[in-house]
Simulated assay, not measured.
Amino acid sequence: MTRVAILISGGGSNMLRLVQAMHDGGFATPVLVASNDLQAAGLAKAAAHGVATAAVDHRSFGRDRAAFEAQLLQPILAAKPDVLCLAGFMRVLTPDFVRQFEGRMLNIHPSLLPKYPGLHTHQRALDAGDAQAGCSVHEVTAELDAGPILGQAVVPVLPGDTAETLAARVLIQEHLLYPQVLRRFVAGDRTPLMLEGSA
């Protein structure tokens, strides 16, 4: 059975969908949920679903990303994951970290990549006057939000949308897209999946 570790920074709503999909579908086993924030609400949610957790506070390492990652790697490597999923993990990982999981690390990003890598994606889509927004699941590479796209879900931008209302609708699609992409990825299918989200 494919072993999956998940990295989070906050409430872990995408992580929960992945864990539930793995438990329900039996296509993989969640072996660890780890966070860069000791207080991340998602840690308790993961534990409630019987998944082991770990946390390493990035703030205690200052600007030394390599030292933080070395500490974070310990519980990850101990869990022996086959796949590493980033689910709202808000730290940029160094190329050295990414290389260790090359070809088996996924991320979900709240834009239709290659548009709007990085932060403030919904506001940037609104500012650009885009008719559509959405989310993407991609392989993680050393270049931020630039790896091969494995799936996307499209959400229409509605009149009067704010960054908050758009984000809420995109999040619904994230919860649908990520588990489907992970299931396909585990089965060896890296053909991009396209979902059309409703308003």
Rank of each mutant, 00 (worst) to 15 (best):
I149N: 02
R184Y: 03
I6N: 10
D189F: 03
V157I: 15
R99W: 00
V137C: 09
Q71A: 15
D37T: 13
D130E: 15
I8L: 14
M1I: 07
T29C: 11
V170H: 04
F101L: 02
E196H: 13
S136P: 01
A67D: 06
V140Q: 04
L84K: 03
R91I: 02
M1Y: 13
A199Q: 09
K115E: 04
P192C: 09
F97M: 07
A48F: 01
L177N: 12
S198N: 10
P159N: 08
S198P: 00
I76K: 11
Q74A: 15
A146D: 13
M105T: 11
L182P: 10
Q20H: 13
H58R: 12
D96P: 00
G26N: 08
N36W: 05
D64F: 11
L193E: 08
G42P: 04
R91C: 00
L106R: 10
E69I: 05
V154W: 13
L150F: 09
G151R: 07
H120S: 09
P95C: 07
V181Q: 13
R63M: 03
A131P: 00
S111P: 00
H23K: 14
E164C: 04
F68N: 02
R59Y: 09
A125P: 00
N14F: 05
A44Q: 15
Q123F: 01
L86S: 06
R63D: 14
V56S: 05
E143K: 08
L144N: 02
P192S: 08
T165R: 04
G160I: 05
F89C: 06
L38R: 15
G25E: 13
T162K: 12
I6P: 07
V4K: 12
V98M: 04
G12F: 13
Q123K: 14
D82T: 01
A128Y: 11
P117Y: 09
G25Q: 11
S60H: 11
Q100T: 00
V155W: 11
V186Y: 11
A46V: 06
K115H: 12
S60W: 00
A79H: 10
F89G: 05
G11T: 14
L113I: 00
G88W: 05
C135Q: 10
F101E: 01
N36I: 01
G42E: 12
G62N: 10
R124H: 15
V33N: 12
A55L: 06
Q180Y: 07
H120E: 14
S136I: 02
F27K: 10
G10H: 14
S111R: 01
